[in-house]
């Protein structure tokens, strides 16, 4: 024990962070510049910054067929408050052991981080349908990707107009 150098522990005491007053950043965030928060927070390496990156992270470059016929998204056309936008997604499927929806990913292309949620279903779900409430920073497309038990994947999207953005400022 004593011979070990505890380099990590000394780091905890060195909490002298320089306090930058990012005038530009603070001002734009307070105004309307919710679209491009400077730098972004470095909290999660796995969360991609663009929709393409996020879809690639989720699907690994798999081909996505047009899912407009089988995926339905219930979203408001105009969301007055971007902080709580109701979303209901459902996918047509018999939901049997042999043929069911395994996962539905929700991605929003205008948020600082595009990932919203992933719903994992099973044959015990009975129906591939889920609802939640999400934040939308501005008017943008909400994308739903459905993964099936046979390996196929489908994608569809819907636009939501947002009156007041909801990612805090």
């Amino acid at each position: 024990m004593t011979s070990q150098t505890k380099a990590e522990q000394t780091g905890a005491a060195g909490w002298t962070r320089r306090r930058f007053i990012i005038t530009l950043g603070a001002a734009s965030a307070a105004a309307a510049g919710l679209t491009a928060l400077p730098g972004g927070a470095a909290w999660s390496a796995e969360d991609a910054k663009t929709v393409e990156e996020e879809i690639k992270r989720l699907m690994g470059g798999k081909e996505l067929a047009d899912g407009a016929k089988i995926i339905s998204m219930d979203l408001p056309q105009i969301a007055e408050n971007g902080n709580t936008v109701p979303l209901e997604v459902s996918v047509e499927s018999p939901m049997t052991e042999a043929d069911h929806v395994t996962t539905v990913h929700i991605v929003a292309d205008g948020n600082p981080r595009p990932g919203v949620a992933s719903f994992h279903f099973s044959p015990l779900s009975g129906r591939a349908q889920a609802s939640t409430r999400m934040r939308l920073a501005k008017t943008q497309n909400v994308i739903a990707i459905a993964e099936m038990s046979d390996g196929k994947a489908y994608m569809t999207k819907a636009e939501v107009k947002v009156t007041i953005g909801g990612c805090g400022g």
Binding site: N83, A108, N111, F119, H120, S131, T132, M134, R135, L136
Partner: peptide, 17 residues
Amino acid sequence: FKADFHPAISANPYMSF
């Protein structure tokens, strides 16, 4: 049923399935 949430989920997360 299982769900993964990202920061884009609203406060007081609601989930129905």
